[in-house]
Amino acid sequence: MTDSSLVVDLAFWGCAVVAVVFGALVFVVDSMARATYALAVSFVATGGALLLMQQSYLGVIVVLMMVMEMAVMAVYMVMFMGMNPALMPMSMVHSHRTALGASLVTFVVLGSGAVLVPWPERRGAPSPDVTEALGRAIMESHMLVMMAVGPVMVATIVVGVALSTARTRYDRLGDDLDQTPTDPPLRGETQRGGRRRDR
């Protein structure tokens, strides 16, 4: 289309190849850390492709969020999998064939759709500053969307903490919240009414 210079094309194919190859590596490599960071690389490349389509803000946000998220994800991986950094052969799959078949069919259907559907011509032109246009959209015409997203995020934080933690603040300090915290925070098993330890 209008901006299809050779440089943009090359950059796009670079990003595309990296995104797909590293995406596939997630389920191929032998270590949790590598799998997590392969996904991070794949996301960075996806963000790069978005940048090429002038969606700078979304592209950079994808990079920022995903690197952060994968850094945290790696912790969960290691915590739940109990692995050391050794490259350990692991295969933790079930119904491998079905999954492979399903994904291949999906790819063929979607891919042929992408290629065969006669896509219409572009309507309208992008605004000169896409980021500013986005900002105006979420603060003016589509403000309701953002107002809804905010509470959903807060609810997610609360739900996440409530689901995953076994302690409450009463565990740490007992009923008297004016106490200074113990150091270390808690000793031994989780204990109700947090015994204070003067050390």
Partner: peptide
Amino acid sequence: MTVETVLLVASALLSIGLYGALSQQ
């Protein structure tokens, strides 16, 4: 870079993800 190629890459990513979501334990 055309709409077809972008969608093709996107469907590749989606399919790989689908494989992972279905097959991993």
